[in-house]
Simulated assay, not measured.
Amino acid sequence: MDIRNIYCIGRNYADHARELGNAIPDKPILFSKPTHSLTIANGQMLEFPSNRGEIHHELEIVLHIGKPYEKGISLEELVDVMALGIDFTLRDEQNELKKKGHPWLRAKGFKHAAVVTDFWSFPGEETCKATDFSLLIHDQVVQKGNIQQMLFSFEQMVEEVGEAFGLGEGDLLFTGTPEGVGPIQSGDQLSLFWGTERKGHFSVRM
């Protein structure tokens, strides 16, 4: 699967915004990641930097765009498949960048900063509301969410990104993380679940 652009939505779950002491936004916060940060979670060991402060996991639903965005296009026409993903964040670096008013890219775009599972057919936004998604570390649930908790719907997000930047076939959209983000440690084993189905897993080395 050829990936063109990786767009992300920040603070799309109110409880996550609160846990980091951030204001709840009144419109989607947009940022991006380089495609070089993308990795498929297929059971492998992934290397992360050990000298750049804490690295936090942020579990997300990831939408894959199947055709070019046009104003008025329906979500089901635009999105063909979906996955689970983790938006890894160098939290200490991000906090320093925010203090200086600088972009977050250094904290969001490092190698393996965008991990995704294999993709499956997108069933539509309403159907997704029936299923929780979760992240387990060493078989313990650390994050669990449902899209009913989102501030902005899939429909709102794709319209916002489509109008701001355009969306085309092969683009990815990370849709925000629920509460429970925290640091990873060397030796951690991470599993991403859609309902009771494990969609991907990997280990961490730092």
Rank of each mutant, 00 (worst) to 15 (best):
R4P: 01
R4E: 13
R4C: 13
R4Y: 06
R4M: 06
N5K: 14
Y7Q: 02
G10K: 04
R11A: 15
D15R: 15
H16N: 12
R18D: 04
G21D: 05
G21F: 08
I24V: 15
P25K: 11
D26G: 07
L30P: 01
F31N: 02
S32P: 00
K33W: 06
H36D: 15
H36Q: 11
S37E: 00
S37C: 05
I40E: 11
N42I: 07
Q44T: 10
M45L: 15
L46D: 05
F48T: 08
S50H: 10
S50T: 05
E54R: 15
H57E: 04
E58P: 09
K67W: 00
K67D: 00
P68L: 00
K71N: 06
L75H: 03
E77L: 00
E77A: 05
V79H: 03
V79D: 01
L90E: 14
Q94A: 15
Q94M: 12
E96D: 14
E96Y: 10
K98A: 08
K99V: 04
K99D: 03
K100Q: 14
W104H: 04
R106V: 14
R106W: 02
K108G: 10
K108M: 06
K111Y: 09
H112Q: 09
A113S: 15
A113C: 08
F119W: 14
F119H: 11
F122A: 03
G124M: 08
E125I: 14
E126R: 13
S134W: 01
D139E: 15
D139H: 14
Q140A: 15
V141S: 09
V141E: 11
Q143M: 09
K144G: 12
N146M: 00
N146F: 09
Q148I: 06
F152H: 07
F154A: 12
F154G: 05
F154L: 08
F154W: 07
Q156A: 15
M157S: 04
M157R: 01
V158A: 00
F165K: 05
G166T: 08
L167F: 00
E169Q: 14
D171A: 01
L172K: 02
L172M: 07
L173C: 10
G176C: 03
T177G: 01
G180L: 10
V181E: 02
G187T: 08
G187C: 11
D188C: 09
Q189T: 14
L190Q: 03
L192E: 09
G195T: 02
E197V: 07
R198P: 05
R198L: 07
G200I: 02
H201C: 10
H201L: 02
H201W: 11
F202Y: 12
M206S: 11
M206Q: 12
M206P: 09
